[in-house]
C-alpha cells in the first residue's frame, strides 16, 4: 500500500508587506516570507512522523496545510491518494478530510468554554449530520476520563485532562491521521508522560498515523519512527529515529542535539552555538544554515543543497557523509 501522506515540493508564502498606501508613499518593496520552501516527505501508514525545528522553521505551517487550514502556494499534498487541490469529486475530498484531525498546543484555548464536554467531543460527527448517541461517553472512557464527565464544562478540568478531551474529540471522527502540534508543551512533565502514553496506546488500538510537530527533541526521540528536521522553512534532514539520534548528518541537526540539555549532563561544558536564526524575509543565499555552520565552504553560500539519500536517511548538505 502507498504511503498515507505524500507531500511534494510544498511551498507556502505569506505576504508580510506594509499596507499598499505605505508601500507607495515610503517606496517600500513587497515583502514575502517563505514559511515553507520546497519541502517533500512521505508518512507511512500507522507510523509517527515528527517534524522538529526551532521557532520560524515552518513546522506548524506544514501541519496546518496538511489539515487543510491553509492552502499551499505551490506543490502538492496527497492524502490516501487524494490531492484535494486537483480532485474533481467533492465527496471524495470530504471523506478524506474527515479522516484528518488535529490536536493543538493549548488545551485552554482549543475547547469552547461555553460548551459541554459531551457536545465538544461529538461535534466532528454531529457537524456532518451524523448521530453521536453515547459516543462521547465511550471516547471519554477510552482516554481515561469518566463517562459521566459529558455534562461538565472545560473549566472543571486540569490541563492534562483537557488535552485528553482534545484527543477524544479528534478520535470521534475515526481519523486515519492526527496532526499534533506541540501537544504536550503546555503540560507538566508528569502529566506529559500520561498524555504521551495515551497517544501511544491509541495509535496501536486504532491504527492511527501521527504527524507529530514539536521542538522538544527528547519527546521526539521517545515518540517518533521517522524524524524530519526543518530549518527556516526547509527540510534539511530526514531519517529513521535511531539513525538520526545516533548519527546525525547535517551540521544543524548535530548542533541541535548537542545544545539540548541532557539529564546526565552534569557540569557539561557546551560550546554554545553561533548566531541566531536569520531573518526569514531575507534568508541567506545558498544553504540557509551557512552563516552559522562551522564547516561551511564557499559553495554553501552560493548554491542551495537538495535533499539526497545518505546512509539511512536524506540530507540537504554538500558536506554530509
Amino acid at each position: 500500500m502507498s504511503d498515507l501522506v505524500e507531500v511534494k515540493n510544498l511551498v507556502r508564502d505569506f505576504d508580510v508587506s506594509a499596507p499598499w498606501l505605505n508601500r507607495v508613499l515610503e517606496r517600500k518593496p513587497k515583502a514575502i516570507l517563505q514559511a515553507v520552501s520546497n519541502v517533500s516527505f512521505n508518512i507511512a501508514r500507522n507510523s509517527v512522523y515528527a517534524l522538529v525545528g526551532e521557532s520560524g522553521s515552518g513546522k506548524s505551517t506544514i501541519g496546518k496545510i496538511i489539515v487543510g487550514l491553509l492552502p499551499p502556494t505551490a506543490g502538492t499534498i496527497k492524502i490516501d491518494g487524494i490531492d484535494p487541490a486537483h480532485e474533481p469529486d467533492k465527496a471524495k475530498i470530504a471523506a478524506m478530510q474527515v479522516g484528518i484531525q488535529m490536536i493543538f498546543q493549548d488545551p485552554y484555548a482549543s475547547l469552547n468554554p461555553r460548551w459541554k464536554v459531551g457536545d465538544i467531543i461529538a461535534e466532528p460527527v454531529t457537524a456532518r449530520g451524523g448521530k453521536a448517541d453515547g459516543l462521547a461517553q465511550k471516547l471519554l472512557e477510552q482516554v481515561g476520563l469518566s463517562g459521566a464527565d459529558v455534562n461538565k464544562y472545560p473549566h472543571e478540568f486540569s490541563g492534562g485532562q483537557r488535552q485528553r478531551i482534545c484527543i477524544a474529540r479528534a478520535l470521534a471522527a475515526e481519523p486515519k491521521l492526527i496532526v499534533c502540534d506541540e501537544p504536550t508543551s503546555a503540560l507538566d512533565v508528569s502529566v506529559q508522560a500520561q498524555v504521551l502514553n495515551l497517544m501511544s496506546d491509541l495509535r496501536e488500538e486504532f491504527g492511527l498515523t501521527y504527524l507529530f510537530i514539536s521542538h522538544d527533541l527528547t519527546i521526539v526521540q521517545h515518540m517518533a519512527d521517522t524524524v524530519g528536521v526543518l530549518y527556516l522553512g526547509r527540510l534539511i534532514e530526514e531519517a529513521p529515529r535511531e539513525a538520526l539520534f545516533a548519527d546525525p548528518k547535517h551540521p544543524y541537526t548535530k548542533m541541535l542535539l548537542e545544545a539540548a540539555p541532557k539529564l546526565d549532563g552534569f557540569g557539561r561544558e557546551v560550546e554554545p552555538p553561533k548566531g541566531e536564526i536569520p531573518d526569514p524575509i531575507h534568508p541567506p543565499t545558498g544553504c540557509a544554515y551557512h552563516p552559522r555552520c562551522p564547516i561551511a565552504v564557499d559553495r554553501c553560500t552560493k548554491e542551495r543543497p537538495e535533499m539526497e539519500q545518505k546512509g539511512k536517511g536524506r540530507v540537504a548538505c554538500f558536506l554530509a557523509v
Binding site: V189, S190, Q192, A193, Q194, L196, N197, S200, T218, I219, Q221, H222, M223, R241, E242, F245, K262, L263
Partner: peptide, 16 residues
C-alpha cells in the same frame, strides 16, 4: 517520567 529516561520505545513511567 521524563522521555530521556525511557530511551525511546518503552512506555513512560507516569505519576497518576
Amino acid at each position: 517520567s521524563t522521555p530521556l529516561a525511557a530511551k525511546g520505545g518503552k512506555r513512560l513511567n507516569q505519576i497518576p
